[in-house]
Amino acid sequence: MRDFLVRHPRLAKLAREVGRFGSVGAVAYVVQLGTTNLLWSAAGAGPLTGQVIGTLCSIGVAFAGNRFWTFGDRARTGYGRETVLFLAMNGVGMLIQLACLGFSVYVLDLDGPLAHNIAGNVVGVGLGTLFRFFSYRTWVFPEQPESPPREPVP
Rank of each mutant, 00 (worst) to 15 (best):
R76Q: 11
G112Q: 10
E82S: 10
G124H: 09
V107K: 11
G128H: 07
G120D: 05
A115N: 07
N90S: 05
V123D: 05
P142V: 08
F103Q: 01
I118K: 04
G91M: 13
T70V: 02
D109S: 12
L98S: 01
V84I: 15
G93L: 08
V125A: 06
L130V: 14
G124K: 05
V122Y: 11
D73K: 09
W69V: 01
R81D: 05
V122W: 14
T138I: 09
E82P: 03
Y136Q: 07
Q144T: 14
N121E: 09
T70M: 02
W69I: 00
L114W: 12
V125W: 11
E82C: 01
V140L: 10
Y106L: 07
A64D: 05
R132Q: 06
Y106P: 03
G65Y: 10
R137V: 02
T70D: 03
R67F: 02
D111A: 12
L127Q: 05
R76N: 13
L85T: 04
V140T: 13
R132F: 00
R74I: 02
F68S: 09
D73L: 06
T129M: 14
R74D: 01
V122K: 08
G112I: 04
I118V: 15
V123R: 03
P142Y: 09
V84E: 07
P142S: 10
G91D: 12
L114M: 10
G102Q: 07
V107R: 15
G78N: 12
A99Q: 11
T83Q: 12
R76P: 04
W69D: 06
T77S: 11
V92L: 15
R76A: 07
R76G: 01
D73V: 00
D73S: 12
F68K: 09
T70N: 03
M89S: 10
G128C: 04
R81A: 05
G65N: 04
L108A: 14
T70K: 10
C100K: 06
Y79T: 04
F134Q: 13
D111C: 08
I118L: 15
F103S: 02
S104V: 01
P113S: 14
T129I: 05
G120K: 08
R81S: 02
R132V: 04
L95Y: 03
M89A: 11
G91R: 14
V125C: 09
M94S: 01
G124L: 06
G128P: 01
G72P: 07
Q144D: 10
N90F: 06
L95Q: 05
G112L: 10
R81K: 14
V92W: 11
R76D: 15
V140H: 01
A99P: 09
G126F: 12
G78E: 14
D109T: 02
G72M: 04
N121D: 11
L85K: 15
P113M: 13
V105A: 10
R81C: 06
G80K: 08
F71K: 05
N66K: 07
L87Y: 12
G91H: 13
R67T: 00
A99H: 08
A99V: 13
D111P: 04
N117C: 06
W69A: 00
L101A: 03
W69P: 03
G93F: 05
L101W: 08
A64K: 12
A64R: 15
V125I: 14
F86R: 05
P113D: 13
L101Q: 03
L101I: 04
L108P: 03
